[in-house]
Design a protein around this nucleic acid. Structure first.
Lengths: 151, 151
DNA sequence: TTGCCAACGTTGGTACTGCCAACAATATGA
DNA sequence: TCATATTGTTGGCAGTACCAACGTTGGCAA
């Protein structure tokens, strides 16, 4: 995204949807690049965190828990399995399913990513005070909750 | 984006960068679909608004004013010119430049898009009070300003 | 039991966005 | 005058969030 060398029209500057997408673009770039430095992607972190928090699960469940499409779960699990951060084993109780389990290496990697992400959040929210950060998170969470209900 | 049928891990739910991108995705879909109903895209609105607010300008200036890549300006001006909402005329004072001017039809379309976008913002921010909306906009604007400075 | 529908993993593909590189034409400054 | 910069334009690329289709497997009802 190009930075603003010239004035941006007021209508655009104050448009909430635009502010959201612009800031999100910066956030995305920041995080994507940061994670790339650790040879990881956002989906990697999402899956690892979900696995550590809720334990082993099928790919479909993983997808629902972190809001990913099933096909993207497949690709991400492939990558994580190749790095030996997760194991994918057929579920004997339901032969349609694969059970994905986090490994010791996966847990270690996750903790490193935790630290990395925390510093990235700091960079992202640099101009805001602690209270303001909490405010922002609260507002966003309410919006997200509202929009991820129903159709 | 899939909605959350199952619990999302706390680490993801509270991650500002993730909240931002998730909400932005919803916002983007909302606005994109809304504008599509009016046979328009976000770039169309950005250019039309910039033209009405600052008057005729070269494509390069337009791009800088609304944070678009020059190549995307070309495509957008093509589309707007085809709809006769803008005119693209060579600048006699600098033969490298095209001067882009909004037409009467463009102004009318812009005003319709203004209304449409306002209702879309309302839908996007539905769960927030007026004060909360202002808070959110303020916080986002500060973040954007901070991150669109310097490299 | 059979038959039907749903869920699972997987593959392959789409649309949109935000970029970047290269080019020729033109302007500008040393 | 010559090097450098800017402009419009074309073409392409990577990442994200999807969707459709498929064969396999499970669950349920008749």
């Amino acid at each position: 995204m190009a930075s603003a060398f010239e004035d941006t029209p007021a209508r655009l500057r104050a448009l909430p949807s635009r502010l959201l997408t612009q800031v999100a673009t910066h956030a995305q770039r920041l995080v994507t690049q940061g994670l790339a430095g650790a040879d990881a992607r956002r989906y990697h972190y999402a899956l690892l965190a979900t696995l550590e928090e809720f334990g082993p699960a099928s790919q479909a469940v993983l997808g629902r828990r972190c809001g990913m499409d099933r096909s993207d779960v497949v690709a991400t699990v492939n990558e994580l399995a190749q790095r030996e951060m997760v194991r994918r084993t057929p579920d004997p109780e339901d032969r349609r399913r694969n059970v994905v389990t986090i490994t010791e290496a996966g847990i270690q990697a996750l903790h490193q990513l935790d630290e990395l992400l925390e510093s990235l959040q700091d960079e992202l929210l640099a101009p805001l005070s602690t209270e303001e950060r909490d405010q922002l998170v609260l507002l966003l969470a309410r919006l997200l909750e509202h929009h991820s209900r129903a159709p």
